[in-house]
Computed example of a mutant assay.
Amino acid sequence: MHETESGLLYAIYYPVLAAVGIPANIAAIMILSRGKCGLSKCTTYYLVGMAAADLLVVITGVILNRIVGIYFSASYMSITPVCSLQIVFIYASRDISIWLTVAFTFDRFVAICCQKAKAKYCTKKTAAVVVWTVFVLSFLQNMPWYFKFEPLYIIDEMPWFCHTKPIFYSAPLWVIYSSFNCIVTPFIPFFLILLLNGLTVRYIVVANRARRALCRNKNLENSKDPELENRKKSIVLLFTISGSFIVLWMTFIVHFLYYRITYTYSYMGYDDPIFILEEVGYMLLLLSCCTNTCIYAATQQKFREELKNSLKYPLTWIVQFLQC
């Protein structure tokens, strides 16, 4: 891929991603907040939190970082303190999005597999505590990134751009902090999502067999079982969200492992396969922040109905206004 071709691709991809991601996540927040999608208050709170986190990722990672970097490379967003703070927000919003996906996966695991703990844990109050704790801890954890950078240029006593300090690669505290972040994000979330989904699948297979056997004994084989139907809806929503996360983050994780193992911190050019792998990983990572609304629309009938009503309302208002 030549420099001009890759630059054109990025110049088109990120604005399209922002144009889709901003309204999609705002629509998800508004529709889910009404509580008319047939989901529990606990589930709704997690999904609203995830949509808010994804919206924050689109604003910081796509608009302020990628789009501004492509179209306004010498703007005031490139002043070193602003640039450093922007990096903190990008990493924090990314971590919030990841860990809320883990929290939602764990909540569904408890709701499906741990019936005794469900009444105490799967509540709106618990969800609120978990969501806000993730938000606060993610920002606190990523604050040290602000001190990772130094100015690349100083023009008229103004520091410009963010250049990684050489000490970052050798200082023990930075090495420990960087390694800690590598473990916390994305490897632990990735492992937990796979583990929890595996345990959930195992529980459902066993429970469904027992349920069907009970139905056969009661001659209810042909009748609909509300318990199985509800369980099926929860699983479809859980697995599509978790599966989307795993697929779209896989490329980023592969590159992450490669450059950490081989210490590849620079590239030969835009044609370098490792550079292309890194950029594709970021593109898919940012895309994951726009997919949840599509997942809700594909898997939840009531969400689709609310979305249609939301889209119809402005058109209806315009028609009524014109008829006056």
Rank of each mutant, 00 (worst) to 15 (best):
Y14I: 02
Y14L: 05
P15L: 13
V16M: 15
A19C: 03
V20P: 00
G21C: 09
P23T: 10
I26N: 06
A27V: 08
A27F: 10
A27G: 09
A28C: 00
S40Q: 07
S40W: 08
K41S: 10
T44H: 00
Y45C: 07
M50D: 13
L56W: 14
I63K: 05
I67M: 13
I70F: 00
Y76L: 11
S84Y: 02
L85N: 06
I87D: 00
F89G: 00
F89C: 11
Y91G: 09
Y91M: 08
S93C: 10
D95Y: 10
W99T: 05
L100F: 08
F104Q: 00
F104A: 02
F106N: 03
A111S: 07
K116M: 00
A117C: 08
C122N: 09
T123P: 05
K125P: 08
V130L: 10
F139K: 07
Q141H: 13
F147T: 10
L152F: 10
D156I: 00
M158N: 03
M158I: 15
K165M: 09
I167P: 00
N181I: 10
V184Y: 04
P186E: 03
P186K: 02
P186V: 04
I188V: 15
I193K: 12
L194D: 01
L196H: 02
R209Y: 07
R211F: 01
P226V: 05
R231Q: 14
V236N: 10
V236L: 13
G243A: 06
F245S: 09
W249A: 14
M250D: 09
T251M: 09
F256H: 14
Y259W: 15
Y270F: 13
I274K: 12
F275I: 02
G281M: 02
L284P: 01
S288I: 01
C290W: 02
N292G: 02
N292H: 11
Y296N: 05
A298E: 07
L311R: 09
P314C: 06
L315E: 02
I318C: 11
F321K: 07
L322D: 01
